Computed example of a mutant assay.
Amino acid sequence: MGQTLPKPALRPFLPEDVPLLAAIFTASIEELTGEDYSEVQQQAWMELAEGEEFGKRLAADLTLIATIEGSPVGFASLRGNDHIRMLYVHPAVSGHGIASMLVDALEKLAGGRGAQSLTVDASDTAEGFFAKRGYTAQQRNSITVNDEWLANTTMKKTLGAAR
């Protein structure tokens, strides 16, 4: 716990990142969401990283990669100008500011693109993280992922104060 990580960096997504980002995605779900989702729900969610569709979603959005010493440790994607579509951090670096660094960057990019606010459909696991950053709950959602129901919360943050 008390160990200091080398300084993280950000870079854009590259197509060759897909396998490593899929591994981060599944590890994050498997190891960090167990208190909020059942094993069956986690399995259905992790299956989203299988096949070509995962890479297509990453490529369709503005996806940033957080790295430590050149190795990806997390990623986040901005859909359009105003929606955080994905935010996943490897469990080994969870709690070390990687997610905050990624969201800070997406908030700046969204503001620079003219967005007045930013939304996210936060998992129950991530809801507290976003609330601490000034996002407020707008509505609860039940979504179907590979025939399993999962709950999340649409949250919103006004960006005007930061500009």
Score class of each variant (00 low, 15 high):
145 V>F: 09
160 G>N: 11
149 W>T: 12
88 Y>M: 03
9 A>H: 14
14 L>D: 14
116 Q>N: 11
68 I>M: 07
19 P>K: 12
161 A>P: 10
8 P>H: 05
136 T>C: 15
24 I>E: 00
44 A>L: 11
66 A>G: 06
63 T>S: 12
44 A>M: 11
130 F>A: 05
120 V>W: 01
110 A>W: 08
66 A>K: 06
41 Q>T: 04
129 F>Y: 05
27 A>F: 02
12 P>F: 13
12 P>D: 15
39 E>M: 01
120 V>L: 01
1 M>E: 12
56 K>A: 15
25 F>A: 00
111 G>F: 06
40 V>Q: 14
141 N>F: 04
90 H>Y: 05
1 M>Q: 10
63 T>E: 12
112 G>L: 08
36 D>L: 01
158 T>H: 13
158 T>K: 13
33 T>G: 02
30 E>T: 04
112 G>E: 10
82 D>F: 03
99 A>H: 02
74 G>L: 00
130 F>I: 04
118 L>G: 07
159 L>G: 03
45 W>D: 00
123 S>D: 03
20 L>E: 12
153 T>W: 08
154 T>R: 14
148 E>H: 11
100 S>Q: 10
115 A>F: 05
133 R>C: 06
104 D>I: 02
113 R>S: 07
109 L>R: 14
55 G>N: 12
88 Y>S: 02
19 P>W: 10
20 L>W: 04
93 V>A: 04
159 L>S: 06
10 L>W: 05
51 G>A: 04
5 L>A: 13
72 P>Q: 04
128 G>H: 08
55 G>L: 10
17 D>C: 10
29 I>S: 00
129 F>H: 04
66 A>N: 05
92 A>P: 00
9 A>S: 14
